[in-house]
Amino acid sequence: MTVMPHLPPDAATDLPADEHVADTPEAVHEDRLWCDGGWTARVIKNEDDDGWAVEMIKDGEPEPALVGPWTMGRNKKDPKPLDTAAFNTLVKTASEVLRRHEQQLRAQLHRRVSVAAASGDGELDVTLDIVPEEDEPYALLTAFDAFGEQLAQVQVAVNFKLSRASAASWVENGFRRPG
């Protein structure tokens, strides 16, 4: 097992020497467990068959970002040990999974349409942003001019359907809260 303190490249140097290590998470590089750079890779027994799986967990997250099959070792019984190249590949893959999940969530919570301004001068962007509060979720309907300046914002129900027609109606009605 190799245990090394994990210090960011720009770690403060004005702390006493013993505090540098005490305040910094340690990297762990073991055959079935790697913790480094904000990620943990853990090789686990695959519950679905006789093989092995690896799970990638981002520090501070309760659930793994990625769980996938893991290669058997030469004896066809034990898992292949983790190494630097495998860990780096797993971090890259798990980061991509999280990025795609964030993009999908953003797409579900944010909509945007463009409509003609009531004055006939150009277009307005109208957005609908869902605020997923646990107790009472709501949405914000917002209008922006061609320069990105916010013209109006009203709170609407989460199930408000933003379309070109509903946005145009809102603009034509002087940005009064839709009924």
Rank of each mutant, 00 (worst) to 15 (best):
K161W: 10
N88Q: 10
W34K: 05
R106L: 08
P132E: 07
T89N: 11
W39A: 05
R74S: 15
W34P: 06
I130A: 11
F175D: 00
D145P: 00
D121A: 12
G37N: 11
L140K: 14
M4D: 13
F160R: 01
D49C: 05
S169Q: 15
L128D: 06
T127W: 03
E134L: 07
E47M: 09
N46Y: 00
A17Q: 09
A116G: 09
L33N: 06
G179E: 11
K45D: 15
K77Y: 11
D135A: 09
V126H: 02
S166N: 07
A85E: 14
N46K: 02
E26C: 13
T24P: 01
V21D: 15
D129N: 12
P79A: 03
F87T: 02
K77T: 12
F160V: 01
T24D: 08
P25Y: 02
W39K: 01
G174T: 02
K77R: 13
E19V: 13
N173A: 04
G174R: 02
A85I: 08
A53Q: 10
W34M: 12
A17G: 07
K45L: 10
T142S: 14
L151K: 04
S163E: 07
D121W: 05
F87D: 05
E19I: 07
F175M: 00
A157E: 15
P62V: 05
R164K: 13
D31R: 06
K92T: 14
E55G: 09
W52R: 11
G174Y: 03
A146E: 11
L7I: 02
L151I: 06
S95W: 01
W52I: 11
K76P: 00
A167H: 00
L66Y: 11
K80W: 09
P9S: 15
T13H: 15
P64T: 10
H101D: 14
D135T: 07
T24I: 03
V171H: 01
W34I: 12
R177Y: 08
E61W: 06
D135Y: 07
K80N: 12
T2N: 13
D31V: 02
R176C: 06
D135P: 00
L162P: 04
T84H: 13
Q155H: 05
L124A: 03
E19W: 12
V28A: 11
A167Y: 01
H29T: 02
E149A: 09
T40Y: 01
N46H: 07
T127H: 06
V113S: 03
N46W: 01
R100H: 15
D36Q: 13
G174K: 01
D145S: 00
P9T: 12
K77Q: 14
S169G: 10
N173S: 06
D23Q: 13
T71H: 11
D49R: 02
N173Q: 08
K76R: 12
R112E: 14
V54D: 02
D129K: 14
K76A: 12
L109R: 15
L33Q: 03
L128F: 07
A41H: 01
N75P: 06
T24L: 08
P16Y: 07
R177D: 09
V54W: 00
T24H: 09
V131Q: 15
H20P: 01
